[in-house]
Write a protein that binds this DNA or RNA. Structure first.
Lengths: 332, 332
DNA sequence: TCAAAAGTGTTATCCTTACACCCATGT
DNA sequence: ACATGGGTGTAAGGATAACACTTTTGA
């Protein structure tokens, strides 16, 4: 079949596009991501499925897969990145589709369904990136990571290679004079991958040998799903600084502490309470509702709501966060 | 053919992925993009071609297409976005590929080849977005655009729709209390598309009727190429603020004025010279080379180079620019 | 009475912006 | 002499970060 040269040529270009979703919620001040259990000892994974003819648009296809696999409907959705450079060939000559692209998305939802479907779970995203949670100070796992990375730098072949590795480690992991930048989640994951810190590197055959002790590299995921999750976290951490996306994760009315804890959960940083409140008020991002909370274990708080007019007034309506040493009881 | 159900299923998912490049250079203080002339009265377009089996990775495929079509080799390359939601069907049942995705990239190069190949041209990017150039103050074309958009707001069916349109126009086009944000290039293009300001909206059948007078909507491009260009400009304008990407567009050594003019070209803003220089120096982004320029029509200038150590010292090494009223002879 | 959460006041510091002004070269 | 581009000084104002402190509830 298909002796027509034009058709052969077209077939030569055909690919499959996988749509993969990072669905995020913040509950009880913890950042969570919607995952599917791996069947029979397999790895955890994100909801995903191929882009098909029946889907009107890419985003529609994504929503459809997430709903059918998790019964979760999506609100805010944003495309992240298209991965295709892993030489992941699907070995089926008969199908006409020889390669797989992976299009990642991040979605924000207000409240996880009480009981997720069988095999579906909301999991703390720091399970996959234990080194990214600085809310209570520098995470202890970074000691082991630092040691591993130093060995990796030394293991370079040649002085140039060693210098390049040392610079990457310093810039991304706040070692030897670098400062921690919470936005560089993807760069850190890719560095960890290249250095053999994460299990996926061995599964893909990109690195051979013995990995680090259990717990150091974080929980692995199927395929390139953890890379997509890293992209999502990085995107969100960057975006809250200039767009009011946090409010997609909160109920219509909320307290300033809820807002602060949501930002802290995403950014992985502890913030200074009085200054955070002033920042929010002064930027005009929220307005009073008149209502108050009751019985939350302290003084009742004002309930506020997002103020849409802020979009007009501010060129970059967001929450520029910076780590603080005086973060109250949470800071180290 | 293909009675095998598994193969039918796979075929149902097959798509073609088009790789499209926005290749940017800044020459003589003007931002330019590499374009191909449309053949026989067709529209101008960007270099592009399908992702094929012979390409090792997506980025390799892109580089290969750009080189074969323009003889320009690429340095810095960054993926932008995957467009697929326009219901652009390729009507060939025999091919197995039913849909086309469009993966956009932006590339930065130092110097355009003196004489580009036949049918290839470096064009000022403000040709396609005349409303985006605020280097000499508010561009006059915005008067006509403002009028057209006001009529579009009034033409809404229903009060809710009208309010939503009015807010979008105010936020994006600095009308009625909004401030101009140079980063919102894509939002402005999409608004212009929906409002029928750009020719592509009529070509796609998204809008019917009479368009605005010639020159108001900017020069159109083939397919969704102008949308990809808008995405590239938006990405670059955002990125120069926190990453040292400008230096990819400059020779290894350069003067501070060259640097300023390159930033101004990208951002479409006039900047205050003394303050810009202090910003650059104080951030430690450049270092002296010891050499000076000669004969450029004024006092000789120090030649500087990018200082890589800045990557370590600054959490976000970039050039936060803001429009100024005191921009010297260029400001309005 | 104490813990927990909500808030206010105030200061020192840094960064940004704007304005004013001087310097060195080519024509 | 003057145009062009290079460059310095400085003061006002705003934003930020840190510290100290008060208020209101529930257990």
């Amino acid at each position: 079949m298909n002796r027509n040269p034009k058709a052969r040529e077209r077939r030569n270009e055909a690919v499959t596009a996988d749509l993969t979703a990072v669905v995020v919620a913040v509950t009880g001040g913890e950042p969570r991501v919607l995952t599917l259990d791996g069947t029979a000892g397999e790895l955890e994974r994100l909801p995903s499925g191929p882009f098909e003819l029946r889907h009107r648009t890419l985003e529609q296809g994504l929503r459809s897969w997430v709903e059918s696999q998790t019964r979760q409907t999506l609100g805010y959705v944003e495309q992240l990145y298209t991965f295709g450079d892993r030489d992941r060939h699907v070995p089926t000559a008969a199908t006409g589709a020889a390669r797989v692209l992976s299009i990642g998305y991040v979605a924000l939802v207000r409240e996880p369904r009480q009981s997720a479907a069988e095999g579906v779970a909301w999991r703390d995203w720091y399970r996959y990136f234990p080194w990214e949670d600085w809310r209570h100070g520098r995470p202890p796992v970074l000691d082991a990571i630092e040691g591993w990375l130093r060995a990796w730098v030394e293991g370079a072949s040649g002085a140039t290679e060693r210098r390049q590795r040392a610079e990457r480690v310093a810039v991304n992991f706040a070692i030897d004079g670098g400062t921690w930048n919470e936005d560089r989640v993807l760069e850190r994951y890719e560095l960890a991958y290249g250095a053999g810190l994460v299990a996926e590197a061995y599964a893909d055959g990109a690195v051979v040998g013995q990995g680090p002790p259990r717990g150091v590299g974080g929980e692995p995921m199927a395929g390139d799903h953890r890379r997509i999750l890293a992209t999502a976290i990085a995107r969100l951490r960057g975006k809250i600084k200039y767009r009011p996306v946090v409010f997609e994760l909160l109920p219509p009315t909320f307290t300033l502490l809820q807002l602060q804890q949501t930002v802290e959960a995403l950014a992985g940083l502890g913030l200074h309470k009085p200054n955070f409140r002033r920042l929010v008020e002064q930027q005009g991002l929220v307005e009073d509702t008149g209502a108050m909370t009751l019985g939350t274990g302290g003084r009742p708080a004002r309930l506020v709501r997002f103020r849409r007019e802020a979009l007009l007034e501010r060129p970059a309506p967001g929450l520029r966060v910076r780590a603080t040493r005086a973060a109250g009881p949470r800071g180290s």
